[in-house]
């Protein structure tokens, strides 16, 4: 049985069908990619899974549980953590504080939360910046903090919304390594990414959406060869990236 099943999910904003009857299923332990041109509805689909919006139609099943319309905090407690495309750190707080907010979901003990956070920060090479205020971080570090903070909630599944956008090539490689490490710890990853080189190299399976609709899904090789995908990405081509 798949870990996450998205069944015919639609999300309408007024007349706009931002997501239109999309279905997919993600197996435990996979790295699953979601791609599509700007405005295709990728983030909106994430928001539906993470509970920011209730889907207009359709159902979301996680581990056999129907979580459609659940509140974001309940979904997080269940084990799905997410990052935001536009990072939202707690600016006036330290990096450690940021991750501790996440860690508190599994413990109410402060020092335990602190210990777990420090471990997470270490694995993201942020430990030496633990006492820096989040607003003083570089863009790359902010992106990393966004992922670290989600990891501090000890999720089974991680939703990453363009966590590599705006990074330099060597930083992208580093993030890819981190993602593989997360996967090796048994955490399922569902990620949106525009950087084709990155998503193609790391994903086990990819779904492509355009104008809210699913065009296809398949392995990276199948996706790369597909006529429709190449058309959708004309001008933003895989070859050039």
């Amino acid at each position: 049985m798949a870990l996450l099943e998205i069944n015919n999910v639609s999300k309408h904003f007024g007349g706009l069908k931002a997501v239109d009857q999309v279905s997919m299923s993600i197996e435990k332990g996979q790295i699953y990619g979601l791609i599509g041109p700007n405005g295709a509805g990728k983030s909106t689909l994430f928001n539906c899974v993470a509970g920011t919006y209730g889907p207009t139609l359709g159902a979301i099943i996680y581990s056999g549980k129907d979580i459609t319309g659940w509140k974001p905090w309940d979904i997080c407690k269940l084990g799905i953590a997410r990052t935001f495309q536009i990072v939202k750190p707690f600016q006036t707080k330290t990096v450690l504080y940021n991750t501790m907010v996440g860690a508190f979901i599994r413990t109410s003990n402060r020092s335990e939360a602190e210990d777990r956070s420090m471990e997470v920060l270490k694995s993201f090479k942020l430990a030496d910046k633990a006492h820096t205020l989040a607003k003083n971080l570089t863009i790359a570090d902010r992106k990393r903090l966004e992922v670290a903070r989600a990891m501090a909630t000890e999720p089974e599944m991680l939703l990453l919304d363009e966590c590599m956008a705006g990074l330099r090539p060597n930083e992208v490689d580093q993030t890819l390594d981190e993602i593989r490490l997360i996967r090796d710890r048994g955490i399922t990853i569902f990620m949106i990414e525009h950087i084709m080189r990155a998503i193609m190299s790391v994903s086990d399976r990819i779904t492509v959406i355009q104008f809210g609709r699913k065009i296809m899904d398949g392995t990276p090789q199948e996706v790369a060869k597909d006529e429709r995908v190449i058309k959708a990405y004309l001008g933003e081509s895989y070859a050039a990236a």
Binding site: P72, C76, F84, P89, F90, K93, V101, I105
Partner: peptide, 12 residues
């Protein structure tokens, strides 16, 4: 500070 981020980290 960031209600949406807090919610997605499990905070009601």
């Amino acid at each position: 500070e960031e209600p949406e981020a807090a919610q997605s980290l499990g905070v009601n």
